[in-house]
């Protein structure tokens, strides 16, 4: 019964969302519907409003107009941690790991939404505390092992290579068992070899973890190779959407990226 409702219901539905900052319209009339297990790309030139869309979905901003639904639940008025517990997890354009705690602790803290105990549980080391901590640690170590980060579990994130930090941020997001994963420029700052590996990783995550992914990316090859569906925005406006093939030849996209040929 429950699978029926979730399979028919879009994981993410945004209806006519607009975000203004003073006089600036950062995102205008943005709509999108993501079904289960879709992998969609969100591209656009710098300052197009892509990250603002992510900030709106994750509850960091409240949209000036329009509505966002996660699995059918409206997110209006919810704090970011509440939105996260609806099944949304994200990474950041500039890596935002907690740099003074170990890799393992980075994963553990991300489990705050599913803790079975509170302050007094931690004080008196209750049964639920012990069980919950054991479960969290076990799952975190398993996840790190899957992503071959288990050897670095006790390192600080700053001691990790840049590519591994990017990877760790994705693992941290995945550890929250999201249904919707928002990846904000995961390939930023990576060389082409690392970027290729990242493509494989995201592809593999998408297949293995049964998760809907929305991806912001500047590397065109990454987006074209990964996404079945692409949305292009410029100055907050949606200017094109379709398959990679359609986007590649779309006149508005070419204009947005390369400029008009009239001088």
């Amino acid at each position: 019964m429950q699978t029926q409702t979730t399979s028919s219901m879009p994981v993410l539905e945004i209806r006519k969302m607009t975000q203004r900052f003073g006089g600036l319209v950062a995102v205008s009339n943005f709509s999108v519907t993501l079904g289960r297990n879709q992998l969609t790309g969100l591209i656009g030139p710098n300052g197009a409003g892509k990250t603002t869309v992510f900030n709106l979905i994750s509850g960091f901003y409240q949209p000036s107009e329009g509505e966002i639904f996660i699995n059918g639940t409206p997110t209006a008025g919810l704090k970011p941690h509440k939105v996260t517990s609806l099944g949304v997890a994200r990474t950041f354009q500039n890596i935002r790991l907690w740099n003074q705690m170990s890799v393992l602790d980075n994963i553990r803290v991300a489990q705050h939404g599913s803790l079975d105990y509170g302050f007094f549980g931690a004080m008196f080391r209750t049964r639920s505390y012990v069980d919950c901590e054991a479960k969290i640690e076990k799952e975190a170590r398993e996840l790190l092992e899957i992503f071959e980060l288990d050897k670095q579990a006790d390192e600080l994130p700053t001691n990790l290579a840049y590519g591994l930090q990017r990877k760790l941020e994705i693992v941290r997001a995945l550890s929250e068992k999201p249904q919707l994963l928002l990846l904000d420029e995961p390939a930023a700052g990576l060389n082409s070899v690392d970027a290729q590996e990242l493509i494989r990783l995201i592809h593999w995550i998408h297949e293995t973890f049964d998760v809907t992914i929305l991806l912001i990316e500047h590397h065109m090859d990454v987006v074209m190779e990964l996404c079945s569906e692409i949305k292009v925005i410029d100055f907050g406006q949606t200017i094109a959407e379709g398959t990679p093939e359609q986007i590649r030849n779309h006149p508005a996209v070419i204009t947005a990226y390369l400029g008009d040929d009239t001088i």
Binding site: S58, G59, F60, K79, P80, H81, T84, S85, A89, R90, F92, R96, L97, W98, N99, Q100, M101, V109, A110, Q111, H112, G113, S114, R172, A173, E176
Partner: peptide
């Protein structure tokens, strides 16, 4: 302490 924004978005109330 280390990153409040990341904490809130990573499910910390």
């Amino acid at each position: 302490c280390q990153d409040e924004v990341a904490a809130e978005i990573m499910s910390v109330n």
